[in-house]
């Protein structure tokens, strides 16, 4: 098995060192985690996303709000190249991840292993709870039992699930309750040790108490990774996101500081209408 941490050569340079570095977009010491340029998505002729251009910074929570069919989920799929697994999905434009053009990658699996994803509906894999969380490390070639134990406990704890399942780590993850499965999914995403975590309407199948607990977890995680939070609850975006993008009908209408948007400081009136609940 290949250990990704060994045989690492000193920095051989980004594949795209020429990324523009206009100072006015930089905030503090942060750099761009994700640069999306003119992204478009078509499903067998139907346009679901067009001309999306935005940046996501390191260590921020980036919220994406918008009504159903705005193209939010397709957007996430493009970022970790899951479009290659979807029939008839055509992607145009450019996405840079840590400065690398993701369509030029030699090993797309390595990209995905750096991006944790949480779905609207929780998916507990038909493995034990332990193995659900140990799977990603195992895929990377970690097989040392003590190391795995540490990872499993840490990730389950961070996902606020450890106390509930620590006595039955060998029962099936797919048979947990919905809320528990969603936290298991988060633990699994964390077990990848990702630098980007993408959550797609994670609270749909989760009770409010669990939602609040997960939100607390996300706030803590911000210091370690970048988070993209797609949500159908505008207030959730307000609670968590540093910046928020508003998607509508396959277009990114605008991106702004969350507080500014919610205070009505918008460029496009539709953003305000959506935030105020006039449609959606």
């Amino acid at each position: 098995m290949v250990n990704p941490d060994t045989a690492t050569k000193p920095n051989a340079g980004n594949s795209n060192p020429a990324a523009p570095d206009s100072m006015e977009d930089r905030r503090g010491m942060n750099t761009r985690k994700l640069e999306v340029r003119d992204l478009s998505v078509h499903y067998s002729g139907n346009t679901v996303l067009s001309e999306v251009t935005l940046d996501v910074w390191e260590n921020e929570i980036f919220g994406i709000i918008g009504p159903a069919n705005a193209g939010k989920t397709s957007f996430l799929k493009c970022i970790n190249r899951m479009n290659t697994f979807t029939d008839n999905m055509e992607v145009g434009g450019q996405i840079l991840f840590s400065g690398m053009d993701i369509h030029q990658l030699k090993n797309v699996y390595a990209l995905r292993s750096r991006i944790g994803v949480v779905f609207p509906l929780p998916v507990g894999l038909p493995l034990t709870i332990y193995e659900n969380v140990a799977l990603a490390p195992r895929l990377k070639g970690i097989s040392d039992k003590t190391e795995l134990n540490i990872i499993v406990e840490r990730c389950l704890t961070r996902a606020a699930l450890w106390d509930e399942v620590k006595d039955r780590l060998n029962s099936l993850g797919s048979l947990l309750s919905g809320g528990q499965q969603q936290r298991l999914t988060i633990a699994r995403a964390l077990s990848q040790d990702p630098d980007l975590l993408m959550l797609d309407e994670f609270s749909i199948a989760v009770d409010p108490v669990t939602t609040m607990r997960i939100e607390e977890v996300l706030k803590e995680l911000r210091s370690e990774m970048t988070i993209i939070l797609v949500t159908n609850l505008v207030q959730q975006a307000r609670r968590l996101a540093d910046r928020t993008a508003f998607f509508l009908d396959g277009k990114c209408v605008e991106v702004g500081e969350t507080e500014a948007l919610f205070e009505g400081n918008v460029e496009d009136p539709r953003t305000r209408d959506y935030i105020e609940g006039k449609f959606g």
Binding site: F85, R112, F119, V123, L139
Partner: peptide, 12 residues
Amino acid sequence: AFREACWNMGAT
């Protein structure tokens, strides 16, 4: 969905 979950984790 199980496959998707795995692929999303970087599994081949």
